[in-house]
Every structure is written in C-alpha cells, then in structure tokens.
Amino acid sequence: MHSNQWLNTKDRFGRVSISLHWLMAVVLIGLYLLGLYMVDLGYYDPWYHDSLSIHKAVGILAAILLVIRYLWVRFQPRPMHLNPENSVNTLMAKAAHALLYLFMFVLMISGYLISTAKGQGIDVFGLFEFPALLADSAERGELAGDVHDWVATGFIVLVGLHTAASLLHHFVFKDNTLLRMLRVLKS
C-alpha cells in the first residue's frame, strides 16, 4: 500500500514535517541575522524602524508556526533514531532537539514581552495586531530583553551543533539522518 507522503511514519518524515523544519530554519536564522543587524542601526538609518517592525511581525508568525509544529510533532509518529544502539549519540540528539524547542519557545515569549512591556500590541504587517496580554512592567521588559539576547546566542550555537551533527551523520556515519529530512524516503 502506498503510504501518505504528507504524514510521518515510524521510519521516515512526511512532507509536512520536512517543510516545517526547513521553513523554520530559514525564518529563524533570518530573524537571528536581522536581530544582530538591527540593534546596531543608528537613529537616522532608513532601516531603523522597518527592521524592527519586520523582526516583530515575522517573530509572531514564527511563533504561530512553532505552535503548529509542536502540535504536529506531538501527534505524529516520530521516526525512530537511526542508530539507537549508540545511546550516547541518541541521548545527545534528544537533548539537543529538546533544547532547540525550549529555546525557540523562550525566544518567542521573551521577544513578545519586550515589545509589549508597555501595553502596546505587535502589528503583523498590517494584517492583525497581536495584543499585549500582561500588565505593564518595564522591569519585565528589561529582563525579557536580556533573556532574548542570551538565548538567541545559545540557540544559534545549538543550530550550529545540530548542523554539524547532521553533516557528521551524512559524511562520516553515512546514514540517512540528513537525507530523511531533505526528502520523503521510501519506507
């Protein structure tokens, strides 16, 4: 029987998981680079306002994607680790994946708390406004800023490790770890 290409199975990722993975990879690395760039812009730079507006709006969309992805991961079968007999590698991979998710959630929440510290919502490309839900607090905004800064650095380091590990699997261990995230493999 031809299995549904969109869904995961026990031994491969489906199209939805693969698309979400790469879409978020592009969006989050983009957000990181944009964030680095925008915080050093001078007041008279033409991008001073737009860079931040775009970062915030894309951040909200990324947060929505993250929730969808998290639910998808929870309710879809998870392809098994390829070399479960190597328990150290498997454990490291599990820890890295868990941390990546944790950092993404912390980044979305802290970013949201910076911009909404004064009760102003976040405009998403004029389509809708994501409202400020908590009471005003400059201290919380300041703390959120520090957390956002540190966790963004931690996140990008983890992304580097994650990438290095996938290349290691592909070129050294010569297994399907990277390939099965690039296309839907035959079961």
Partner: peptide, 16 residues
C-alpha cells in the same frame, strides 16, 4: 533613572 517613561516600551528600553 530606570523609571524613565516616554509611553513606548522599546524607546524606554533604549533610553535605559
């Protein structure tokens, strides 16, 4: 000084 308030979260953060 941390109590600076110009009615805009990001500007206030920048001012601090």
């Amino acid at each position: 000084t941390t109590s600076v308030d110009s009615n805009h979260a990001e500007r206030d953060k920048h001012l601090r």
